[in-house]
Lab assay of single mutants.
Amino acid sequence: MTSCHIAEEHIQKVAIFGGTHGNELTGVFLVKHWLENGAEIQRTGLEVKPFITNPRAVKKCTRYIDCDLNRIFDLENLGKKMSEDLPYEVRRAQEINHLFGPKDSEDSYDIIFDLHNTTSNMGCTLILEDSRNNFLIQMFHYIKTSLAPLPCYVYLIEHPSLKYATTRSIAKYPVGIEVGPQPQGVLRADILDQMRKMIKHALDFIHHFNEGKEFPPCAIEVYKIIEKVDYPRDENGEIAAIIHPNLQDQDWKPLHPGDPMFLTLDGKTIPLGGDCTVYPVFVNEAAYYEKKEAFAKTTKLTLNAKSIRCCLH
């Protein structure tokens, strides 16, 4: 018999989150649709729960009410004593943790798909938090293969000092899905179709896995975050240069030392320094102006996964 890495157990509980950011409308629209008619997301033997994560922000069509829901799922915020004085999103995070967690427990949901849009030209993107997770690498390989020839990129946010504390991190297997470009507060049919297909293929993978299909060893190309880059700023902290036209919409493309990065209003080009080629992502993302992030630098690498098969009882 072929030796293989056996994944822990079959997958039982899956959640699909929309509206973690209330103005990213593809996930909101799909989740609302699936709450009314969820036939397309159901798979035999699998509990799939669509869920609106930040209903107040969705109602106002804004990213958040008090603070970013997708950055506060750490033990400090989840452990705060519940009171009306807490920011709305912290209270909501505790409610979500109660419903789908608790985080880092045996009772937490197996998989959470968190649906997002970006204003950046990132196409279909899967966000991975753990480079050693054979199950998710296999799932992402399946999704990428199923979507081809449509490109699907994998963004690895594993980093020693950049801690995200994402909404989906309460699950055993957290999956971020990011599709763009799409303006905030807008629905685009092409973007919706791409996100819908990503979810379909992900659920198909889980179904095949649960039925005992063995997935042979595989490898995927990923883009691992190195650092986030702020806009150049003046002495008052105001933005002093904008994304250069040569960099705009060039997510995932190589940016070499000396290539144009920013452009000042008086026409001066600010190039990339250093001696390493990087791959920019979230270029000129609207939501990241407040976070002082013009783009993120990534490096390209390959992740390998062992063969996996479900432990059938």
Rank of each mutant, 00 (worst) to 15 (best):
K297V: 15
K291T: 10
V31I: 11
D66Q: 09
D110C: 00
D114I: 02
T302Y: 09
Q250K: 13
I96N: 06
I225L: 15
Y64E: 08
C218V: 10
P183E: 06
T44L: 08
D259T: 00
E227Y: 04
D114E: 08
K49N: 09
E221Y: 04
N97W: 09
L162E: 15
E235R: 10
G267P: 01
V14R: 05
A15G: 15
Q184R: 10
T264V: 02
E285I: 03
I308L: 15
Q248E: 08
D110L: 02
F51G: 04
V186A: 11
E238N: 12
D85N: 13
P160S: 12
L263T: 07
D193T: 10
E221K: 03
E24Q: 09
L203P: 04
N70T: 08
I127A: 06
K13E: 01
C61A: 13
D68Y: 01
R309K: 15
P271L: 09
N246A: 13
D130V: 01
N134S: 13
V179S: 03
N210L: 00
Q94D: 10
F100E: 05
H207W: 11
I220S: 02
E8R: 14
N236A: 10
T2S: 14
D85F: 12
S146T: 08
E89D: 06
P271M: 08
T44D: 14
R168C: 10
N284D: 03
D68V: 01
I41S: 02
T44N: 14
K80Q: 14
I177T: 02
N304C: 13
P50A: 07
T302I: 14
I225N: 14
C310T: 10
S169N: 09
R196I: 04
N121Y: 00
I170D: 01
N246K: 12
S131Q: 09
P160V: 08
S146K: 15
T44K: 14
C124L: 08
N210P: 05
F140G: 04
V179M: 03
Y279N: 00
N246T: 11
I225G: 12
Q138D: 00
C124A: 10
P102W: 09
L192K: 05
D230W: 08
E214D: 08
Q248V: 09
E84R: 13
N210T: 06
D275G: 08
L312M: 12
N236Y: 10
S131H: 09
S108P: 12
T53H: 01
L187E: 03
E89F: 03
V14Q: 06
H201G: 08
D234N: 11
S3Y: 09
T125M: 07
M82Q: 14
V90L: 13
K268R: 12
Y153M: 11
T269N: 08
D68T: 02
H159V: 08
K228T: 12
T20K: 05
A241Y: 01
G22E: 10
I226S: 08
Y88E: 10
P216Y: 00
I52L: 14
V179W: 05
L35V: 08
G101T: 06
F140P: 05
S108D: 08
C4H: 15
G258D: 10
K13P: 04
C152N: 01
D114L: 00
S105H: 13
Y142M: 03
H116A: 08
V58D: 02
N54Q: 00
L187Q: 03
H10T: 14
Y155M: 15
K253E: 08
D190G: 06
L99E: 12
D190I: 02
F29P: 03
N236W: 08
G38T: 11
T145D: 09
Y289V: 14
G180I: 05
Q94E: 10
K163H: 12
S83F: 12
C276F: 09
Y223A: 00
D85G: 13
Y153N: 15
K49A: 10
H5P: 15
N77T: 13
P50W: 04
P183C: 10
I220C: 06
P260Y: 00
L187A: 09
L99K: 11
K32A: 06
Y223C: 00
F295C: 01
V28N: 13
P260F: 00
P181V: 02
F100I: 07
N133S: 12
L272W: 10
A57S: 11
K172Q: 07
S120M: 05
G27I: 03
V28T: 15
A287E: 12
L69R: 06
K300F: 00
A57I: 02
P151E: 11
K103G: 11
T299F: 09
I137W: 04
D66S: 09
F295V: 02
K59M: 11
N121D: 00
H201V: 07
I65N: 08
K197Q: 13
V179D: 03
L147W: 04
E36K: 13
E214Y: 07
I206Q: 00
T20W: 00
T145S: 12
Y279I: 02
E290F: 07
A57P: 01
E214M: 10
M261N: 01
R63M: 09
G123D: 03
V281Y: 03
Y155V: 15
D85H: 13
G101K: 07
A294D: 05
L35A: 11
L263A: 07
L46Q: 04
C124W: 04
L69D: 07
I206F: 06
D190Q: 07
E238G: 09
Q94S: 12
E178I: 15
A165K: 15
T277Y: 03
H313Y: 13
N304Y: 12
P87Y: 02
Q250D: 01
E84L: 14
W34R: 03
L99F: 12
Q194H: 09
F140I: 06
H5T: 14
E178D: 09
D130E: 07
G176C: 15
D66P: 01
K163N: 13
C61Q: 13
Q12C: 06
E24F: 01
G258M: 07
D68W: 03
H313S: 15
K172P: 08
C61H: 12
F51Q: 03
K228P: 08
K103T: 11
K144A: 11
Q250R: 12
H256T: 09
N121L: 02
Y153E: 09
V58S: 10
D74F: 09
L46A: 01
L128D: 06
V28Q: 15
T298D: 05
M122Y: 05
P260E: 05
I72L: 14
N246E: 11
P217F: 02
D193M: 12
P257K: 00
